[in-house]
Write a protein that binds this DNA or RNA. Sequence first.
RNA 1: GCCGAUGUAGCUCAGCCGGUAGAGCAAGCGAUUCGUAAUCGCUAGGUCAGGAGUUCGAAUCUCCUCAUCGGCUCCA
Length: 638
Amino acid sequence: MSEIKIHLPDGSSAIHESGMAVRDILTSWKKASLKSAVAAKVNGVKVDLSFRVEKDADLEPIEIGSKEGLDILRHSISHVMAQAVQESFAGVKVSIGPSIEDGFYYDFDYSETFTLEDLQKIEKKMRDIVAADLPFIRREVSREEAVELFRKKGESYKVELLNDLPEDVKEVSLYIDGEYVDLCRGPHIPSTKMIKAFKLMNVAGAYWRGDEKNKMLQRIYGTGFATEKELKEYLNFLEEAKKRDHRKLGKELDLFQVNDEVGPGLVIFHPKGALLRMIIEDWERKEHLKRGYDIVQGPQILRGDLWKKSGHFDHYREFMYFTEVEGQLYGIKPMNCIAHMMIYKSKIRSYRDLPLRYFELGTVHRHEKTGVLHGLLRVRQFTQDDAHILCTPDQLNSEIRAIADFVGYAMKIFGFDYEVELSTRPEKSIGSDEDWEMATAALEASLKDNRMAYEVNVGDGAFYGPKIDFKLKDALKRKWQCATIQCDFTLPERFDLSYIGPDGEKHRPVMLHRVILGAIERFMGVLIEHHAGAFPLWLSPVQAVLMTVTDNQIPYGENVYLQLLDAGVRVERDFRNEKLGYKIREAQMQKVPFMLVIGDKEVESSRVSPRQRDGKNLGPMGPDEFIALVREKCIKYE
RNA sequence: GCCGAUGUAGCUCAGCCGGUAGAGCAAGCGAUUCGUAAUCGCUAGGUCAGGAGUUCGAAUCUCCUCAUCGGCUCCA
């Protein structure tokens, strides 16, 4: 028997017999390491603890507390769930069951629908399996053998998966725990006993292989953690997130409504919501003018022919609303670009005019499928902070960089973290290969120049060009695309845009589509959740509520009210005949940043006593002093 | 669009196996004038999402439509 040399993560090495199991090597290294290890990496490849090491190797345990460890744990729990489902319900076919960001799921094909009571039953069964301490045993078999096995079991989805494997795959691995066999790459935890904390969350429909042409399966979502404590923390997080839901807060803070009678996906902004929106839009206009944009405004409906010319009629029609006026077809705009093109075309342009940056808070309509609508985050009418930049190919890079800077600045002001993605050519698209390559390269180059970390999203571009997407997260950690930069060589071509170059010849400009906050509605939704409705002072629709202790202070209160209004403070009065505590509670629940208390003392000294939303009392001060305080904070975007 | 769940007063919700609706908060009125998260009392409020059916009788059972929620697919 030959000897092998194992390098361990602490820098030490050990000599063992070839063929020794990872479990035993780890035990002889550090006994304790086996308690928390769910699997291991041998030369960087994830393996089970039962894996036998044949040659010299680097060995590293995968801890249950690590991200990779948690993934493996959850994946194993999904197997246990599938096992429990099969043992509890006859005729269930399994398909796939991976771990995901916050847990795991498994998709089943079953004639009956799973109910919430069924989930409890499944959970109970799972606990039995966990208690039985069943080892996960890996078996490698030939592809044919696996096909035969699953065919016999009637597991047609597994057979389909096997048949679709690349031809050079000759062997596949199975994992067996108790009676249950699953096709799986692994690795898995050594035994079901290692599962300490899990919970099944909900059932939902999901298409087989994510394709809407395929059969819809039933997906059971669950989550699992290394410890009960972490599971509890996660469940608490979900509770907290629910409280932050912008749809709930939108109602509580009286910001907006989405009403059946009006139509799905159509938002009505109430006074406070409209005010918040106005504050954001004012900020936008100011920042765009600062950066050399021109503010423009296009019409809401444009002739059908124009949409045919732009390619929207062929590629975007299913999302568009149309109307007929005097026998002419008109399309309600789903995007703002067309009018901006017409502005460019309104006269001859010189290279000296470029870049031209047209900005519009443009309201668009898109016929989104009913099932995707979601509060403010996915609607059918929305307003984009949209701009189209027409420039020479040489200017492309610096323009993209300037936009990326702008996005970074905006995210800092509003306090968001974000992720960046580069999306490439989709199947359904227009334009030449060269243009797509050039556009994609330009976007990528500017990301690299700016040293921005990004992921590539293959085939996720717009139909007219590739794009850079900036994604924000909502309270439930769902990612929402807000800012985006899209490079477009096609529309300038279709609309025959040109400029006269230094050589006196006509040239074709390049167009960038871009938004900074994206859709104002969506951005507001994410903003509400981000702040849990407690907006910073500069964004708060109501910055202060004046409240009298008794009716005696009303005349003075009216005076202060006018003074604050005149100074531009967004202030409300609560002069009702209620106790102070009641008024404070109400303002507190409305998350108003300042409550200005007026009692006899304040009247006598011509002052107000501000109480902050966090409960801190600032002590009496003159109204002008309070005005100065508000102004100072707003300038600093606090 | 697809799968599943849900839809009762302005809001949050109760209403078991069918016998024509109830609570708290909010609202209106009255009392109280009370200094940092809820003063007390009274009053009013609903074609039980909409439509059709079963039944002597439907919020409750069946079907259809609409909307919402959780996902899938798609997207700002």
